[in-house]
């Protein structure tokens, strides 16, 4: 499917609120606009309100207040129209373990009301596209997590949706399956003009896949922009060094502080946010060389979305510390 003129593939929300009985406001006044054909990454920790937002946008949960439209249709007043233009793969792949992939396709094409003569070919096409042809006649109960996710994605595409919602689609997947799914999602947006609303708690996923990112925390969007814009808001990279001779650590810290402001680090190293960015790197190496301080390591840390998250919320994204520690090393 390619997007045709006049089709509104956008997602809009104004003051969207969802309040549960005797509970907190899971979503607390969200405003957002996702442009047609855009991949919008909705990034936040567990319990931030990502999935609740998706449930409202996909007409599975009515908002308590505010309004939202998807594909030009109001999610409260025009639920059937919204559902006809969207596809969704929600957090828990809702699959029947007693059906095969092909039988799932049969069910989904019927639920979506596809013409009879198109159902089998469409199902086979999608099964092939997500690489499940060989397993198509096996019961889904025996599938791996990655296979289930791929089938869930294929099912979401049955009726050629204009807007696709993916709620943490790669959670629990191995790196290979994750990359494969990213490729598929990128292709849908780039080649077919599908608008993608993707929730994730993986910084790398939002960074690589999303055209724009909204960071949600405690039900509110705390930052929004392209990954590059968000990182540049935080500013300059930092450099982290450790000395071979532990006794010269203080001397190294003093020397390094000439290049920027110190950042607390708990790893037996010293780190500064560079005043002049990456341009300072050469000077640092020369200074240490001249002072005769041997370095055990020198790491350049580019700002990450986790830094953005930290700056906006005062805490790191859950479970991302290890993943981010390796990023930006040079």
């Amino acid at each position: 499917m390619t997007m045709t003129m006049g089709e509104d593939n956008s997602i809009e929300a104004e003051g969207l609120v969802r309040e549960f009985k005797n509970g907190p406001r899971a979503v607390d006044g969200i405003d957002l606009r996702v442009e047609p054909g855009e991949i919008y990454g909705f990034l936040g920790p567990n319990g931030a309100g990502k999935s609740t937002t998706v449930l409202m946008l996909t007409t599975l949960l009515p908002p308590t207040a505010g309004r939202a439209s998807v594909g030009g249709f109001d999610v409260v007043e025009q639920g059937p129209e919204v559902r006809s233009v969207i596809g969704a793969a929600l957090q828990e792949a809702a699959l029947d373990p007693h059906l095969t992939a092909r039988e799932h396709m049969r069910l989904q094409t019927a639920l979506q009301g596809l013409p009879h003569d198109e159902r089998k070919s469409r199902g086979d096409e999608l099964i092939d596209r997500v690489g499940l042809s060989e397993a198509a006649d096996r019961k889904v109960g025996g599938y791996s997590g990655g296979m289930k996710r791929r089938l869930d994605l294929a099912l979401a595409l049955v009726h050629r949706p204009r807007v696709l919602f993916l709620d943490e689609p790669t959670t629990g997947l191995d790196p290979q399956s994750r990359t494969s799914l990213w490729d598929e999602v990128s292709g849908l947006a780039a080649e077919q003009g599908v608008t993608v609303f993707l929730t994730t708690q993986y910084l790398e996923e939002a960074d690589q896949l999303a055209d724009r990112v909204g960071i949600i925390n405690d039900g509110r969007i705390v930052a929004e922009g392209t990954p590059a814009e968000l990182k540049s808001e935080i500013g300059r990279p930092s450099v982290e060094i450790s000395t071979r001779d532990e006794a010269r650590r203080e001397e190294a810290a003093a020397l390094l502080s000439r290049f920027g402001s110190p950042i607390p680090t708990g790893r037996g190293a010293v780190e500064v946010r560079l005043d002049h960015g990456i341009d300072d790197l050469g000077g640092i190496v020369r200074e240490f060389d001249a002072a005769g301080i041997e370095l055990a390591s020198l790491v350049l840390n580019e700002p990450t979305l986790d830094d953005v998250f930290l700056a906006k919320t005062g805490r790191h994204l859950e479970g991302e510390g290890a993943e981010e520690a390796g990023e930006g090393e040079s």
């Binding site: 996909t58 007409t59 599975l60 059937p80 129209e81 559902r83 006809s84 969704a88 929600l90 828990e92 792949a93 809702a94 699959l95 029947d96 989904q108 639920l111 979506q112 009301g113 099912l155």
Partner: peptide, 14 residues
């Protein structure tokens, strides 16, 4: 309970 209801709610217009 097991999520298939949500799939059906999501996929059917009415």
């Amino acid at each position: 309970e097991q999520g298939m209801g949500r799939r059906m709610m999501m996929a059917t217009a009415h």
